[in-house]
Design a protein around this nucleic acid. Structure first.
Lengths: 253, 253
DNA sequence: TAGTGGTCTAGACCACAGG
DNA sequence: CTGTGGTCTAGACCACTAC
């Protein structure tokens, strides 16, 4: 599914209006939102769309609601980002007011190692596309990306200028859509290559995030290893009661 | 709010039924769910509750839906846990079939350091309750917890046997409820104390998770530092398109 | 083209928060 | 008590998928 132009839905319009009011601090943290009845009036809508808009904002961590009381605006420093934006290092670097750049080390069509083949559901030595990039924020290296794509996705990457273009944006444009991204987070210490690429010392701590991207039909398209310089980056996560919690712990004892 | 007994809602009954069918593999990954119309019949319900049940399962990562096609069951190894269960190391250790235990190093009423006071919204040297515990899985240390509570919560912790009782379960029982937990994830290397407590080597990688727990009114009650032995534990995270993404990246360049 | 899920309407009753 | 959000009904039309 390419990104289709969707007709503006009523509930999205209501959500967008409230989101904007929160963003501009017209509705500040702690303020009460208009009641549902009031929003129905203002948008000439029935309660359904209004409630769907509120549910959307709730799931974004922007507001909190409860039976009998008005919904209130939360501290939006914990608002969650969209699916697209977390795929993109460019997006979060820019959102911090820094200048993103990339240094591509490798873009190659090559046989898959046993581990990568297994993660991608392929036979060993099947051909994949591997990409290795260093990502920089204000010219400071913050992240090494080592990505491996099945050919369905990877063939669209081979011709790309990976220093200036976004891989996932391009994949989305050509109709390769990820539906589901799972990550495993751990910590490691930098080896010599990590240290060289990130300009840190061997033995410095790295946040290691392995990523598996799947299609709607659960076919794995991407298996990647991201390593963040721990002193320069951290990851954040916010959970609210009532929303299911997206973090879990895996033990290897 | 103590855990109130809630009347069984219709949509919850429907969701529970489907959840159970998925858990027992009566509906396996890839299978199509019954259509909404069919579920309406089966539960003598209108579409509202059926759709709410589906939305719940979607947000739990159990199913995927889309216009024009039947909803399908996803690989539930990425199903998300409840708000309560991720508060509890005991819960995830048990869920992996291991025996949880704890070694409490410290439970004390003491003045807050500058950092902790600031995070808890207190003046420096205000009194807080500090707890330090090692958590073990099958007698292997996996995690050091260093927790700091405002007195509103902490006074309920002072009398607790922290080696055998769950702090958050107890707090919930006495009416101290967290509404919102935010985490920051990073990587560090073990110092001498970490190494001694976790029985690893100085310089080994640790996953560091700092946790801030807040009430519904956004008052910070807890500020804690958890350190996981990276070789023994990893964290997982799953995101689906359409659901807002709960992970973000913070830069400190 | 038939069936499905996404959106919407216009009502209704209830549980709970707050004065 | 009044007003609020939570839940539910019984319809409707539409966009899309799969055939």
């Amino acid at each position: 599914m390419t990104t289709t132009v969707r007709p503006p839905q009523q509930y999205e319009a209501i959500a967008a209006h409230l989101r904007e009011a929160i963003r501009t601090k017209e509705l500040a943290a702690g303020d009460m939102l208009p009641s549902e009845a009031e929003l129905c009036d203002r948008f000439k809508s029935s309660r359904g769309p209004v409630r769907q808009a509120m549910a959307t904002l709730r799931s974004e961590g922007l507001i909190s609601s409860g039976r009998g009381r008005r919904s209130i605006v939360l501290d939006s420093s914990y608002a969650t980002e969209t699916f697209e934006s977390i795929l993109s290092a460019t997006a979060w670097i820019e959102s911090h007011g820094m200048k993103p750049s990339s240094g591509t080390q490798l873009v190659a069509r090559q046989p898959a190692s046993a581990e990568i083949a297994s993660e991608l559901g392929l036979n060993e030595n099947a051909t994949i596309v591997a990409v290795e990039r260093v990502r920089l924020a204000d010219d400071v290296p913050v992240l090494v990306e080592r990505m491996n794509f099945r050919m369905e996705a990877g063939r669209h990457v081979l011709g790309l200028d990976t220093d200036t273009e976004s891989i996932h944006a391009h994949l989305s444009e050509v109709g390769v859509d990820f539906n589901n991204i799972s990550r495993t987070i751990s910590a490691i210490v930098a080896d010599e290559e990590d240290a060289r690429l990130l300009k840190i010392n061997v033995g410095d701590p790295l946040i290691q995030v392995t990523i598996k991207g799947r299609t709607q039909a659960s076919v794995p398209l991407e298996f990647s290893d991201f390593r963040y310089a721990a002193g320069r980056v951290s990851l954040g996560l916010n959970n609210m009661r009532g929303n299911p919690s997206p973090l879990w712990v895996e033990a290897h004892v």
